[in-house]
Design a protein around this nucleic acid. Sequence first.
DNA 1: GCTTGTTGCAACCTTCACTGTTACGACTGT
DNA 2: ACAGTCGTAACAGTGAAGGTTGCAACAAGC
Lengths: 144, 144
Amino acid sequence: MSANSRLTIAAHALAWIGLYQRQGHEVATSEQIATSANTNPVVIRRLLGELRRAGLVESRRGVGAGWSLARELESMTLLDVYEAVEPGPLFAMHRTTPDQGCVVGYGIQPTMQGIYEGIEETLRHELARVTLANILRDVLAAPR
Amino acid sequence: MSANSRLTIAAHALAWIGLYQRQGHEVATSEQIATSANTNPVVIRRLLGELRRAGLVESRRGVGAGWSLARELESMTLLDVYEAVEPGPLFAMHRTTPDQGCVVGYGIQPTMQGIYEGIEETLRHELARVTLANILRDVLAAPR
DNA sequence: GCTTGTTGCAACCTTCACTGTTACGACTGT
DNA sequence: ACAGTCGTAACAGTGAAGGTTGCAACAAGC
């Protein structure tokens, strides 16, 4: 499983914006977030763009522009973020259709499909249990 | 999440070998399995090689060579297969270390690490509930 | 209206994992 | 000795993701 870090970076960005706003600032720039996450501002803008489409953040343009939360961190779960940035299923089927003349080739896809759906449902349930406010709290509680 | 099909193909191969053995055959060849899965025999041999390292199958060489189950399908779970063919974690951290001078950059990795570990534990629990015998039964029960 | 700082987005490169393919040596039953 | 199959290396193709550059669009302040 080629693990990707999109969910991690998205959570990082949201926690950063949330903390920055708690400190009294209106908006955060992709430049600031990119510095904290040690990556490129464009990568952050691409990710935040997906979060904006999902209604989690808003952006302003022009001078003094930047990003702000569209909802409270308390009402945002990891599942919201996951759905915003991870489109595909966790496990894939065969890349080419298996031999439909073979009993196993014929029945394997519906069987695995059913199993995978159950597992993804459990995964979503787990993700929904964690709010971004939980994450920010734990981040701030990290021992120095 | 770039979904991959390794788990699906591995389950397919095991179900195929299991059924073939139930029909009275000693060993199955990578060629036969590859035909059913509509892929290349080398791909199957590579995957089964990983399953052999995990103690799930055995292979014989020479004339009349091929693959056989090392354990009953009833005692094999999807978790066994998952661990054999999927080495890495489900979610990754940042590719480069975040800014340790930033509160969020400092605390985000241990925080996410903890969350991900809990989620993976749940995933493993779900995978362990499904045996390969369950899968073969469902495959054979697929309506024509 | 001009300047300035920031987003929005396209284009392209690099990296990486996986799949697919070819080739060939190693092994073993007949 | 032969033939069939595994074991494995080597390499190309594919696709996703991250990184980078460049520039148009936009809006606040002067």
